[in-house]
Design a protein around this nucleic acid. Structure first.
Length: 191
DNA sequence: TAGGCCATCTGGTCCT
DNA sequence: AGGACCAGATGGCCTA
């Protein structure tokens, strides 16, 4: 599309249309020679007005060219953003139904995932510092059956998002403990 | 068919 | 001045 305007200067001439309707005639085969573009002396005043018209046309072309370039950059920017989102999806645990997470779901899931991992590490550190024998280990926690089927799309209460705790995945309606247990099933060898 | 999701366009704003 | 970023608008596609 940019090519449409790339050679606009080379195609233009000093002749400018008598009216708005004639604007396109400048680059046309009809305006074959530069001489044909030169107005007669009697039209000098009109020439000035035409000059202004040319500037307006040129400004419009420049604006359109910049817009098209900006559109292209914006498109690429969004593509890069989507690529990053896809990369994020790849490092997140896969879901049984294999349906692609939406953008918002991916971000929320990643948020929960990071929280679950950090929570797992915290619990592990806690366990390591204890000497009580009957305390359940993090591995035990991970081996515990999921109360809500972990990743199944069960309908349940959603936990409100609060500082320091992740928002529940709307799609899977996981509470934080559910999420931790569920995530543990994906990182069984973390210890 | 309504609603959700997405890609794209667009104009505004900020930054270099 | 030009590019990056952002948010609103719009239209297409898909699904319940």
């Amino acid at each position: 599309m940019d090519a449409l305007f790339a050679d606009i200067d080379s195609n233009s001439c000093d002749f400018f249309p008598h009216s708005e309707e004639d604007e396109d005639s400048c680059g046309s085969p009809r305006a074959s020679s530069p001489d044909s573009c030169a107005p007669p002396p009697a039209q000098q005043q009109k020439k000035r007005r035409r000059g202004r018209a040319r500037n307006e046309v040129t400004v419009q072309v420049v604006k359109k060219t910049r817009r098209l370039k900006a559109n292209d950059r914006e498109r690429n920017r969004m593509h890069n953003l989507n690529d990053a989102l896809d990369a994020l999806r790849r490092v997140l645990p896969a879901f049984p139904d294999e349906t692609k997470l939406t953008k918002i779901e991916t971000l929320r899931f990643a948020h929960n995932y990071i929280w679950a991992l950090s929570e797992t590490i915290r619990i592990a550190d806690l366990q390591a510092g204890r000497s009580i024998r009957d305390t359940r280990s993090p591995a035990d926690i991970c081996e515990a059956p999921s109360p809500s089927g972990s990743w199944s799309s069960s309908s349940g209460s959603s936990c409100a998002s609060s500082p320091g705790s992740p928002a529940t995945l709307d799609r899977f309606s996981l509470t934080q403990p559910d999420a931790l247990l569920g995530f543990c099933s994906f990182v069984p060898n973390i210890y």
